[in-house]
Structures are given as structure tokens and as C-alpha cells.
Design a protein around this nucleic acid. Sequence first.
DNA 1: GCGATAGTTTGCGCCAGCACAACGTAATTG
DNA 2: CAATTACGTTGTGCTGGCGCAAACTATCGC
Lengths: 242, 242
Amino acid sequence: MNEPAPRKPLSRLDESLLTGLPPFSRLERRQIRTILDQGTVRRYDAGIAVFDEGAPAQRFFMLLDGHIRVVRVTPTGEQVTALHIPSGELFGIAPALGRDTYPATAITASESLALSWPVRLWQEFVTRYDGFATETYKTVGKRVGEMNTRIVEMATQHVEQRIANAVLRLANQNGRQTDEGIEIDFPITRQDLSELTGTTLHTVSRMLSAWEKDGIVKSRRKRIILCDPHRLVVISEAHPTR
Amino acid sequence: MNEPAPRKPLSRLDESLLTGLPPFSRLERRQIRTILDQGTVRRYDAGIAVFDEGAPAQRFFMLLDGHIRVVRVTPTGEQVTALHIPSGELFGIAPALGRDTYPATAITASESLALSWPVRLWQEFVTRYDGFATETYKTVGKRVGEMNTRIVEMATQHVEQRIANAVLRLANQNGRQTDEGIEIDFPITRQDLSELTGTTLHTVSRMLSAWEKDGIVKSRRKRIILCDPHRLVVISEAHPTR
DNA sequence: GCGATAGTTTGCGCCAGCACAACGTAATTG
DNA sequence: CAATTACGTTGTGCTGGCGCAAACTATCGC
């Protein structure tokens, strides 16, 4: 992160942390207190695995601050990013999918803060707290939709369009307006982008260079700023050969 | 289908239709009777859309017989198959994902028989029937896993490996042992396979021809028989360049 | 301030897989 | 059994994007 995030007292969390967030928005202060007291907060450095693919799902998580990349590793060791999780969302919700192991690895893209609970509380949350089930399944639905879109993109679009789409999506979810344009407000490398689009870091680099030459983006190390999102949209839609 | 499927009396269904199926396996005969009476059966010809992407989700379905392809259509009209649904599974379960429209189109791959209920019953099923929620979320979890795998494959594997994987998966889910080998027991065209693997029907055709020359598969029109599944597995794993 | 490390850029050659195109063949219809 | 339609095969040429390689540059730890 750029500025040091305002540090929350880790000992006892404020109820306001959760009140705004969809899965908990219909709950009363007292209920949220209970939920907070049952959970554990932890800070994670950037680039740390919060949990690993295949590991027994012992806890589920709410990302309070930072960004998570959900990654799968192939038998031969290359990584593919399946999803990006912005702060304010649940993750590692294996129990919602009837699973007892995590289906993928969660890696912090930036320094992050997450609250977590043991899975045995899942059933309790679902039955006891109004709106929790509904909202979490909306989240699942949204992610299924995203994955679906990724599949369609990978199947039909060219690399340039896929990269454009990925950048646009990231900017939409995690964009921050600056005087130069919209900046993706967490560190992202060419390698990350290539894992997100199923290509190589070389190709991504070339692409960004070309776009920068055309004034569509600016990019420093680990940072991307969109100067002309509209042109990117055009690229992402253009020339669908197949 | 090859032989005309044994025709069920459409008027009043037998409880045994559902007793074996996971979402209903823990229920009593009386409960299943109620569930059956609340639903509607319908037969669909091959190649028919059961519901369309984006349409309001008015019903959810249980596939009793046949096969469904879950398809998304791109803005430019090409189709991508996201999932295959074998008989005995729920589909069109938008309500489980907190959605009120269908996220994709469901097309019958062969003549099919499906039972369906209005979505307003979903909540009732989930709360009233033991195991229904758990089992349906397992189904969702399984499908998320499959989609994830597809993404990884599309991102890292070559066309030949993707086709091999697709064929193997179909054979696993819907294989039937014959004297020539394992036959995929529903009609599938080169075009279908190409939509499943994100390639062209030409490339699929070439691939199958090559495999047939090597004695790995036999293929008639709309039919594929695996003579040597093991060699296919080798192909699907081999030479992961990136 | 100086390596060391992690991230980025760029050039070059090559080939998997696509576009295009034409033809062959099995099923279907009346 | 024509005629028609749907599905499958195969050839040719071309190119997007990858592999490989090498150099460059921020950033960090000491």
C-alpha cells in the first residue's frame, strides 16, 4: 500500500468494520459483536499464501483490507489466476460449496487484513444470521459469472483483447482516480497479468509498451494507470476473428 | 439416443425416479411424492434450448434423462460451452446463486427428460428437505471446480491436450463400454468439441483423424469411441510447454 | 553507496493453429 | 430415390503469439 493504512487496534475490533458489508448488513450491533468476538484478525504481508489449494478447509475469511489473488497451480508448476478478491468480500468459503478442502490457493496481492472463523461456525452463521446465506450465495453467483466470462474470453478472444479486458476489470473493481487517470490501486506485475490472461509476461510487456506509446495507459513498475479507458474498451471489443 | 428409451408414464411419476438422486436421497417416500406432485415433467427434443441466458429464472430443473450443454453466446454470436450436465443432476439453479436470471443457455445434447419446479419452491426445498441444500451446494462446488479446471487448461495447455482432456472427461462422465472401447453415449459433433475446447471444428477434425490413424479412437458421425484411453491420458499430460 | 534481487523491455526466429476453401459423405425428407 | 441438408475431411498459406536470450532498471537490504 502507499500510505500506511490507519492501523486498527487488533485487540478489540470495532463493530463498524462489518456493518456496511453485505453478508452482515442486516444484522444488529449485538450480533455483529458476537461474530467479531468469535473470529480472529490477522495481518498478512504482500505475496503470502493465506491458504493452499487442497489443504483442509479449517477456516473461512472476510477480507477487511488489501487484495487477494485466487490462484491454481498446474502439475508443471505454472500459476493461473482464477479470481481477484477486493476487500469487503468473503473468501475461502469452501463450506458454501460443500467442500472440505480449499479448491485453490489464496495469495495476498498487497498487504492485507483478514478476519476468519473456524468452519464449524459456518452452519451457525447461515442459519442464525438473516441475510448471511443469501448474500454469500450472491457472492458465489457473482464469482461463477466471472469465471464463466473468463472461460468465454479465453476461448474466443485474442491476447490483446484479453489483456484489455483484464485491465479494465481490475480498474473497475479496484480503480482509484488520480490526476493522470485511473490507477489500479494495488501492485500488479506483468507476470500477474499474464497469469490472469493465460499468456506470457513478455507479451503483456509488449502490449503495455505499445499502449503506452499510444497514450492509452501509463505504467510504472507494478503500477498501471489508465489514461484513456475508452480506447481500451474499443480494443477489448475489436476484431473478434473467430 | 440409440434405442428408444423406456417411456415413463408422464401423467404420474414413480417415486423411484428421485430416490436414488443425491439431493433427494435422504428423503422419505412421502416427501418425494409431494416434490414430484409439485413439479412438471417435460420431454425435449435434441438441440432445444431449455432456457436462455438472461431470461428471468422462473423454474429450476432436474435432468432425469439425456444430456445438457450449458452454453454462453458471445456478443459476436459464437458459442462457448461452459459445462456438460449428465442426467441425475440439477440444473438451471439460478436461485442457488442468488440470481434471478439464468447466467447461461441450456441446450439439450440429446433427447432429454427434465422435471422442473417454480423458483418460489426453492426456499421451501432448502429449508424443509434435509440434505437438499448440502447436496445442491456440493453440485455447485463440483461445477465451480470444473470451471476452474477449464480455465487452467485454456490458459496453459495446447489445443491437442485440451481436446484430449475434454474427450476423456466426457467419456468419464458419460462413457459406455462397448466391444470396440468406451463410447461417449450421446451425440457430439466436431463443432461441439471445438466449442468445448475453444478451437475450430477443423482443428478438432484433424486431431481426431490423426488419433484414429494411430488407433487411439474411432469416430463415426456424432460418435466417438475411445479405444486406448491411456494413450489419450499421456497426450493430455504431455509437452506442457509454458 | 553498492550489490543483489525482482521486475521490465526488446529483438529475433519459429511454428501451432487459424482462415479460407473445396469437396466428400451420411442422414433426412417428401 | 432424388434432392437437400447437416456433418466431416483435407489442403494451403499465413500470422499471432510463444520460446529463447540478453540487456536494462527500479527497489531493497546491509
